[in-house]
């Protein structure tokens, strides 16, 4: 399957079909830090991904401006 990752944007190919959990383990990605979108549809961690699926692993962690220690908002 084709896996699209971001920050930095890149595409990797993974052989075979597998569950989301197995895919994330294989890529060493923490499931709390990403969404998995298969063929344009959000899927839960027990979803099974076919060998020809196009999968986006979208990082959800951001940490830029405005999050300052002690900031009053």
């Amino acid at each position: 399957m084709k896996i699209e990752l971001r920050n930095p944007t890149r595409t990797v190919e993974i052989e075979g079909a597998m569950s989301v959990t197995k895919l994330l383990n294989k890529l060493d990605v923490n499931s709390a830090s990403v969404l998995v979108i298969c063929d344009g549809v959000l899927v839960p961690t027990d979803a099974f991904l076919e060998h020809d699926a196009v999968v986006e692993i979208r990082n959800v962690i951001s940490g830029g401006a405005g999050v300052i220690y002690g900031a009053t908002v």
Partner: peptide
Amino acid sequence: DEREMAAYCVIAGIDYMLDECPMAAGNKHL
């Protein structure tokens, strides 16, 4: 949490900036 907010946007059809701020890369907060 952040994963829930990202999921909210995907489900609600809200397009948002996916790229991380270049100034924030590697900061302590992350």
